[in-house]
């Protein structure tokens, strides 16, 4: 999966979970930039990510993410190690 494809799917998941079709994520986007991205929705996003990308996040990984760029990179690494 290429980086643009990852961003496409991330956008789709964020839009569905937060019910906002105007969301456009960039590497610099943080929770403060997106309305509704609170701690509860964060979990729903994580669970949806795990389901659609077929990856599993560790507790520490969920905490350490600072912005969408790190999230996309983490997903990319997990997909790559899945082979």
């Amino acid at each position: 999966m290429t980086e643009p494809e990852i961003y496409d799917l991330l956008n789709q998941i964020f839009r569905e979970v937060l019910e906002d079709d105007t969301i456009v994520l960039t590497p610099a986007t943080t929770a403060e930039d997106v309305e509704g991205w609170d701690s509860m929705n964060h979990i729903f996003i994580v669970v949806e990510l795990e389901k659609r990308f077929g990856v599993k996040f560790q507790a520490a990984e969920m905490e350490e993410l600072k912005n969408v760029g790190e999230l996309a990179a983490l997903v990319g690494r997990k997909l790559a190690s899945k082979g």
């Binding site: 964060h42 979990i43 994580v46 669970v47 389901k51 507790a59 969920m62």
Partner: peptide, 13 residues
């Protein structure tokens, strides 16, 4: 992992 991260005992799914 969700328990440690968010104290969710029941999985959202």
């Amino acid at each position: 992992a969700l328990w440690h991260h968010a104290k969710q005992e029941i999985h959202p799914a």
